[in-house]
Design a protein around this nucleic acid. Structure first.
Length: 328
DNA sequence: AATACGGGGCG
DNA sequence: CGCCCAGTATT
């Protein structure tokens, strides 16, 4: 079997008996070991929407308090649509990726104006909303409306790959499209909600990226990656997994600069500062510069102007050349 | 396919 | 200090 050939519509398949065994093992484990997460205790599509946007690239533990705070401040989709954007952004900080706050409110306003206040229930319709991609659309359809759809986030990708294909490194590994196809093929009929949640819990608690605890894994007996590791006596697997990934990254030439020198960092500083100002009050760029960058000089003005213009373009600030900058 | 987009927490 | 995280939009 050669997993490099991406005929893409089909991927390696377990037998129906093997698949049923995996379903049973993982769902049974989830029934007893699942994390008690607040968005699992509701079926309010708005609350699910808020949680899923917050959870994009953001850990569960950081989201939980913000999720409660945000829903307390904006209890319904209509409340969020009617709120000042500055208040929404302000509540979002310091979750990061602040465009998510602007887009979330834009979604709420569109839902009120175009969907009679009801959040769409199909992947196809959800995908039309800016800020909702295939993962979030699938998550809302499944977790809020119990649609039997597959969805793939970073946890599910890793777990399905290890379970049904093998280690993700060295390459080749499944593409995004192939992974979604696999996810659809292994979805247990009628159990999409628990299955998708279970895959994410397994990825977060056991089948982690760098240090999976295979000895505690409920589906170890059926796992392709576990068989690979066993055959080569690679336990504990943490070191070898990290090494394989590092080699793959070096090949791709990835290099990061210090975060506190990045434009990203200063964009965050600007938004965090503006939210402390009295409502409506603006700051000139000359006032703003020194307050976000200790080494700021007049020579940095073009840089700052570029930064603020981009923030304005993203809807995160209101910038008038003459008057200065504030939250929108 | 590559890049922009945050920031907190942990080893 | 490097790495990770319930991704999406844009080029």
């Amino acid at each position: 079997m050669h997993r490099s050939s991406p005929s893409s519509s089909t991927v390696a398949q377990p037998t129906p008996e093997q698949l049923a065994r995996v379903h049973h093992l993982l769902l049974e484990w989830y029934a007893h070991e699942q994390r008690p997460l607040p968005w699992r205790a509701t079926s309010d599509p708005y609350a699910i929407l808020v949680s899923e946007i917050m959870l994009q690239q953001t850990q569960v533990e950081r989201v939980i308090p913000k999720y409660h705070e945000f829903l307390s401040r904006f209890p319904t989709v209509a409340d969020l649509a009617a709120a000042p954007t500055a208040a929404v952004i302000s509540t979002w900080v310091p979750l990061g990726y602040n465009q998510r706050a602007v887009r979330l409110q834009a979604i709420a306003r569109q839902v009120v104006s175009d969907y009679q206040g009801r959040i769409p229930d199909s992947v196809e319709e959800l995908l039309k909303l800016k800020g909702i991609g295939r993962y979030t659309a699938g998550a809302i359809a499944c977790f809020a409306y119990h649609r039997q759809v597959a969805t793939v986030d970073t946890n599910i990708r890793r777990v399905l790959h290890r379970l049904f294909i093998g280690l993700e490194h060295p390459e080749p590994r499944l593409s995004d499209a192939e992974t979604l196809t696999l996810a659809e093929q292994v979805l247990p009929p009628g159990r999409a909600y628990e299955w998708n949640q279970a895959l994410m819990d397994l990825g977060a608690m056991i089948c982690t990226s760098a240090s999976p605890q295979c000895e505690r894994c409920p589906v170890g007996e059926a796992c392709a990656a576990y068989r690979e590791l066993s055959a080569q006596s690679l336990f504990p697997s943490g070191t070898v997994l990290r090494t394989l990934r590092k080699v793959a990254e070096k090949k791709s030439g990835y290099q990061a600069q210090p975060f506190t020198q990045s434009d990203r960092y200063f964009r965050g500083r600007i938004v965090a500062l503006l939210r402390t100002l009295p409502p409506e009050q603006r700051l000139s760029l000359a006032e703003l510069g020194p307050r976000i960058k200790s080494s700021y000089t007049e020579a940095d003005l073009p840089w700052l102007q570029r930064l603020v213009s981009r923030l304005a373009h993203d809807g995160l600030v209101d910038y008038q050349e003459e008057e200065g900058v504030r939250l929108p």
